[in-house]
Design a protein around this nucleic acid. Sequence first.
DNA 1: TCGAATTGTTTGCTAGTATAACAATTATTG
DNA 2: CAATAATTGTTATACTAGCAAACAATTCGA
Lengths: 161, 161
Amino acid sequence: MDAPAAKALRTRRPVDSSALAGTVGYRLRLAQLTVFQDFIETFEELDIRPADYAVLLLIGDNPGCKQGEIAAALGIKRANFVALMNRIEERGLAERRARSSDRRSHALHLTDKGAQFVERMKELQTGHEARLVAALGGEADRDRFLSYLERIIEGKWTGRT
Amino acid sequence: MDAPAAKALRTRRPVDSSALAGTVGYRLRLAQLTVFQDFIETFEELDIRPADYAVLLLIGDNPGCKQGEIAAALGIKRANFVALMNRIEERGLAERRARSSDRRSHALHLTDKGAQFVERMKELQTGHEARLVAALGGEADRDRFLSYLERIIEGKWTGRT
DNA sequence: TCGAATTGTTTGCTAGTATAACAATTATTG
DNA sequence: CAATAATTGTTATACTAGCAAACAATTCGA
């Protein structure tokens, strides 16, 4: 008899998921997963995930910021930000400095090593984004696509909120 | 002095997240979260989440399917599908039937109650989708948007995969 | 000065996802 | 046929992510 794979190809009627596939939300989720996957692979050499990337980028653009400010800008709860920031600090990429004005909060800064790291991050991000834009059809299509995303994010269409 | 809120408005320079916001992946994630949020609110009355919705819909369209087939079609691991299916079965919406041909696998079927449930699901989904399509600008824009998503999902643009 | 608010932190809970191992069953193959 | 391999559902386990509640230290507001 044939190999199992051949048999599978012949006898297995594929599951009909057309009712799901016709849905905007479902395809949006698939697209998001695809992009995240490529993002993760792109940044594998730096051993960071999307959240780390975002935090480092924002600290770089907002030196001296408080933890809560970065967290809020990214939709991360203060409580969950602690472990994230601990990892980043242990890797020597950023640090919490004391502030004279307010001893409750910490001022976040990139280290020199962190600044170099962010430069490398941006190089990798440029490649990732370029591939994605090319897949969309070019700059004009990217803008159109972003416009659609913006209409969804704006959120005035949602039921209760 | 002013109220705290007023002070915040005056003195807090907002965090600059423009480097992140200009990114396709970031906005894609925000849009996906927005849609999921509306989905969850829409289906609150039925007490189901996106995964339950997808499983019930697929069982309805593929009666007699095996657990592993539904799971694979949704990108869910067989191991994680068990608890999901247990909940659905305990609610009396679907059932695992024995098969004479292969006593290893179960044939999944909606119960009568489950079939009614799926009808209500589809009603709610229609409303959710209609709101979303309206936000995008109408049917033509939805098709254009889906086309963009498809280009991303196709995935031929990704680095390693 | 005293109560309220802010800030970072810890702890505990839930959901989602991944792997490994297992028993029962079925398929393959020498 | 008998031994071996593959399939299927299941359990157990772990790890990530996220949320809420509570807390100490500190600062603010009245």
